[in-house]
Design a protein around this nucleic acid. Structure first.
Lengths: 125, 125
DNA sequence: CTCTCGATCAACCATTTGATTGACTGTCAA
DNA sequence: TTGACAGTCAATCAAATGGTTGATCGAGAG
């Protein structure tokens, strides 16, 4: 659940959030949700060069959000939402909306075992 | 899939995700969760200059994640998680884990009306 | 074989970013 | 009034970013 036991490494979150901070890359991820695409297909809607899109994809690959599988001369790109999950873990701690959803869900699942681990466990200094 | 509402403006997401891509700023937000701090207090744990921290805070302010309230010579900073919620909305679309959780929740909410006292056996909202 | 095409590599350039130091504004206290 | 202190502003700098163009590599197609 939200017990953030394995707090994603800072370096990983740096890369993921940085990758998400560009609208072109977010659009690429949107397209890749569910379907795989070639680089040229991904580049088509954009007004920038193919090389620029290729570099954007490399950024996503480095962040672990996209996996590339080269067969022949083409390179099929597919989404890997794993690292996105780490980012979601981090960000959802601050989103009261989702927090409430979690609580309600936990209630339904009878998982009221959890003490007040709702908010972050950090204690003030 | 789950097309939530219209996505937040690209520009806003750019700023939020970019703000979150720096570990210093993420740490600042962590400290500010629940409690308000002065700039100097926020800067204390870091090994960088007060000016650098001040600039980081400005980045957070520009992203709408922090509000600053200057009284006298001090500047009290408090968290505003609103924009974080937009980021969470975006990111959670890709997190199969949460997706499944919420689907389960929706299932519960759909079948059994509501917790506490189930007054009506079945009612869709 | 040659030619084209998908994709990356390699320079290069302008802008942004994260940090520094030094000067400055203001407020509170002595 | 003097001075310490919180905080920002300003100039500077190195490194990272996002884009370009041109060259290159590697399959397929003719």
């Amino acid at each position: 659940m939200v017990d953030h036991k394995a707090l994603a490494s800072d370096a990983a979150l740096n890369l993921v959030f940085a990758a998400l901070s560009d609208p072109v890359r977010r659009q690429l991820l949107s397209r890749l949700d569910g379907e795989a695409f070639l680089v040229k297909e991904l580049a088509a809607p954009f007004d920038i060069s193919l090389q620029a899109v290729s570099k954007h994809i490399q950024v996503l690959v480095k962040a672990g959000l996209v996996r590339q599988e080269r067969t022949g001369r083409v390179s099929r790109c597919r989404l890997d939402a794993g690292p996105m999950h780490e980012a979601a873990l981090w960000v959802n701690r601050y989103s009261k909306y989702w927090q409430d959803q979690f609580d309600t869900l936990a209630l339904f699942l009878g998982d009221i075992d959890k003490p007040k681990a709702r908010r972050k466990p950090r204690r003030k200094s």
